[in-house]
Computed example of a mutant assay.
Amino acid sequence: MTTVKQGKALNIKDSRILIAGAASLVGSHTADLLLKEGAREVLLLDNFSFGSMDAIAHLQNEPRIKIVRADLMRLPDLLAATEGVDGVIHLAAYMTLGFSQTPWQAVDVNIRGAQNMLEACRVNRVKKIIFASSNAVYGYGSGIKGALSEEIPFHSVGAPPAAILYGASKIMGEQLCRHYYQSAGQDYVVLRYSTVYGERQHYRAANSLYIMETYDLVRKGQAPVLPGDGKDTKHFVHVSDVARANVAALQSTATDVAVNVSGPAPITTGELVQLVLEYCKSDLKPEVRPDPPGKVRLTSGGAFHIPHDKAGEVIGWKPVVQMREGVMRLLAWREQQDS
């Protein structure tokens, strides 16, 4: 049994919750769930450089929603936004593709931006912050095997630089949370997401993008592309499960801890392609075509899995959406966008 430090637990119905990076896949679903759970007010903070108003359009007329246009790099913005806030869910960050394309900005936002948010939480005595990390903190280098449990070290051999930079930025964010806990008593929980996918999917995440790219090819009558033999492992978690983890972490008494938020089971690239073909009722055969030089794809081959047992012990969470159901829901949503 995991021994966890005890901190503040939020009663959602009495709370004002701020979501940073709210105009996003995870942000919009988390806002939906917070409203369903009766939150007093939900503040949706974003600078809309990546996030889309489309993701939160359905929330704009909700009286308990407040949209806050602010930038992580401006501490005064965050000080104003977090005043009177009980809990913060910090999602705003550059992803691996961003580190490949604009590493300077990505480093600033993922590290200095996280520090700015923590400082604002300290000044305004925010009761708890949930920091969205990633299983990229394990490195995904060649040779990783077995369970990627929360205690294993960072492994970088063979992984592309953008993936290492992204993972390292999340390690920095996690350690900034620890620093603020130790120096200022700032309660926090780190959630290490696997690749998140689901309705309102964007085209910025390297692995979720593969689902969308495959679907787009098949709908055009073109063969889906396998970058290898189809046996490389991918780890996904449905966005509705991630939203539940965010809320569960706020409601828990846990603090100063990091847990994996992963799906029920890993899936191979080949199995993923078959799910897309099944949805599209297509008999197209996948074409093996190695990724071109410089292509960023987070997961590599390897007999590893990402256990979420600790999340069950610490925040009372486990995933419920199986990959087949999640892909079918995602593609049904995608199809509706074209109708």
Rank of each mutant, 00 (worst) to 15 (best):
N110V: 03
M323E: 10
G141F: 08
L75H: 04
A249I: 03
Q101S: 14
Y203E: 14
D46M: 03
K285G: 04
L148A: 04
F131K: 05
D86S: 11
P292V: 09
G143C: 12
E325P: 05
S169M: 08
I171N: 02
S28V: 10
S134H: 06
Q251G: 05
L331T: 10
E313T: 07
L209G: 14
V26S: 01
I89S: 01
V257F: 01
V261A: 01
G294H: 12
T102V: 13
T3R: 08
F131E: 07
Q274Y: 03
G221R: 02
K318R: 11
H29G: 00
A243P: 04
N61W: 12
A120V: 08
R69H: 15
Q105H: 11
T102R: 09
L91T: 05
Y210M: 13
L331S: 05
Q322W: 00
H305A: 13
S156N: 12
A249E: 06
S15V: 05
L34M: 11
D338C: 07
D71E: 12
R334K: 13
K281T: 14
K295T: 15
M73E: 08
I19Q: 07
T268V: 01
D86N: 14
I152H: 15
E174M: 01
P103I: 10
G326L: 02
V247N: 05
G198D: 02
